[in-house]
Nucleic acid binder design. Structure first.
Lengths: 110, 110
DNA sequence: TTTGTTGTTCGCAAAATTACGAACAATATT
DNA sequence: AATATTGTTCGTAATTTTGCGAACAACAAA
């Protein structure tokens, strides 16, 4: 069933699922919100905002990085994190197109 | 850190995370794509499209229903599923607003 | 009443996720 | 060289997720 892939849109369903999965945890969503509200910040700033162990924060950041939604940069002795803007736009587009597949007014479960 | 909640937007971060989590599995995303491409269909139709056991399909449908993205209706002896349009629109709006928090052109990790 | 159809639920196993403290690495400071 | 700062990685435990077959429920048909 390749209904997402074979549309006129360019949605990569696997990538969309990866984006969604990364966003699917409250802590990671918080981190994304936090980062999206500023240019960039250090690990410590993010860690300060969250009531969990730094090891766990680091792990969530790693997952967000692997999903492509953020990026990290060493700025010794700190690590600067920020939104990965290119992929952010891609995700924005993917989600928008995904939800638009329902936009035509169909009657549903009437 | 309530950066999503205290914006001018009306994003409910927990609900957004629930939507995202439900979409974060390839099979569930496929099901959503499939349902979004039609008015409604029966369990058997969905099951036919997927290479997994019906028990697993049923479980994924249950999760999508609990997340609010789809709805099911008994039409004896079949079960008719379809997109939950109200929540679909809500999800669409939430994701769009979420990704728009980055829309202002900020320089990021230059 | 037996049989068939359609899906859900149960019980279980395997795998993945989440969270933590401790140890570590890299670098700067004393 | 010893110490301090900043984060990552490791090892582990607890929980959740995923997937399956078998059993079941509800109903229609023979």
């Amino acid at each position: 069933m390749n209904c997402c892939e074979n549309k006129h849109t360019n949605i990569d369903a696997e990538q969309l699922a990866r984006f969604a999965k990364a966003m699917g945890h409250p802590t990671r969503l918080e981190i994304l919100c936090f980062l999206a509200s500023m240019d960039s910040c250090y690990f410590g700033d993010i860690n300060n905002e969250l009531p969990i162990a730094k090891a766990t924060v680091s792990q969530h950041l790693k997952e967000l990085k692997e999903a492509g939604l953020i990026q990290g940069e060493i700025e010794t002795p700190k690590v600067k994190y920020c939104i990965n803007r290119a992929n952010w736009e891609k995700a924005k587009t993917y989600f928008a197109e995904f939800f638009d597949t329902m936009s035509e007014t169909k009657v549903c479960c009437k």
